[in-house]
């Protein structure tokens, strides 16, 4: 049975389900949003497995690595993805390295749960969509849910995965409702979701941008342009096969990402398609991303930097060489 739940509740439901199912799962971090949000977990699973930490990111993530080496499955609440940067060594050069360096003797199953993309006046240090930089870290998996159901299913899969997983949840989506299956629900890693089918152009969108892309597709449909919208759902592993298949059908690719243009998911997907699907392309790949700038505080500048529906519609028209509706009229 599915019911309507907010995205954030869906994530919590997965953590709760997995904690009840597997006593090796731990949940800890600073505040865990607020102590009142932590209380149900405390009540259900006790202070051994649910703990509040000081503001000590290196120790929090490092301890998760150690607890994982010792056989547990920690979920660390990072609250803001930028706090991963405070402990970059642990995220990039510790957690994903031990399995490989030990020749497979040990594994480091842990989940780094981090909010991102808070483009609502949070200015330069709390708004980053920084997941792309982790795509270059072998051994680290990246989940990026855009719906409440995926949020639940990907969190459950993250916890069951034997590797370190960065689970990036979009802060602007936290209160968005969606249908969420009850009980055990897993969304596999490396399987993209084709959210809308269409034969004219392929849009690959991530996170918060998926809904913007779907809205843009709706508008484009009114102009007679049929857009296929793909949400990769996990960036590592990345389901390039589904993307290549779609591009083989449409011949056009537009990438929509809230992150920077350089060094991000969009650039990596563009490179994969150029490398493996060049023959399918009937025109240049278009990237609709945030501008390469620190996210400004002031609202008009903030809006200017990040992608939106209008920019997506314009981008699709550009790759198709078709004029926007206004110009036609």
């Amino acid at each position: 049975m599915a019911r309507e739940l907010p995205y954030i509740v869906a994530i919590n439901e997965a953590i709760e389900f997995e904690m009840a199912r597997d006593e090796r799962v731990l949940y800890f971090g600073q505040n865990i949003a607020t102590p009142s949000a932590l209380e149900p977990f405390m009540d259900a699973f006790g202070g051994d497995r649910v703990r509040l930490t000081p503001i000590s990111e290196t120790a929090e993530i490092g301890m998760a690595v150690g607890a994982a080496l010792a056989g547990l499955r920690p979920v660390v609440e990072l609250y803001m993805s930028e706090f991963l940067l405070v402990a970059m060594d642990q995220v990039v050069n510790e957690a994903p390295r031990f399995h490989a360096m030990s020749g497979g003797q040990v594994k480091v199953p842990l989940v780094l749960k981090a909010g991102y993309g808070f483009t609502a006046g949070w200015a330069g240090q709390h708004t980053g969509s920084i997941y792309g930089m982790f795509m270059g870290v072998p051994g680290l998996k990246i989940a990026l849910p855009s719906t409440a159901a995926d949020a639940k299913g990907l969190m459950a899969t993250s916890i069951r995965d034997d590797n370190p997983v960065c689970f990036f949840y979009h802060i602007l989506l936290t209160l968005e409702h969606g249908e969420v299956p009850e009980g055990e629900y897993l969304v596999p890693f490396g399987v993209a979701d084709v959210r809308r089918t269409g034969g004219d152009v392929t849009i690959v969108a991530t996170g918060w941008m998926v809904d913007r892309a779907l809205a843009a597709a709706e508008r484009l449909a009114a102009d007679g342009v049929e857009v296929e919208v793909i949400d990769p759902r996990t960036l590592a592993p990345l389901d390039t096969a589904t993307i290549l298949e779609s591009v083989a059908k449409t011949g056009h690719l537009v990438l929509v990402d809230q992150a920077t243009r350089h060094g991000g998911a969009s650039a990596i997907i563009a490179a994969e398609v150029a490398d493996q699907g060049f023959d399918s392309l009937r025109g240049p790949i278009k990237q609709i991303t945030a501008l390469d700038a620190t996210i400004p505080y002031s609202e008009p500048m903030e809006r200017f930097v990040i992608p939106d529906e209008d920019k997506i519609v314009a981008g699709v028209h550009e790759v198709l060489g078709s004029a926007p509706v206004a110009a036609k009229a």
Binding site: G66, A67, L72, N93
Partner: peptide, 28 residues
Amino acid sequence: VDVDRGFLGTSGIVGAGIPHATGAAWAA
């Protein structure tokens, strides 16, 4: 690394292993 003998591993980064050990102690 030799897990069977309780040697859980080492980091090549100065100080990075201290939280790992602390985490293992939490597990204990």
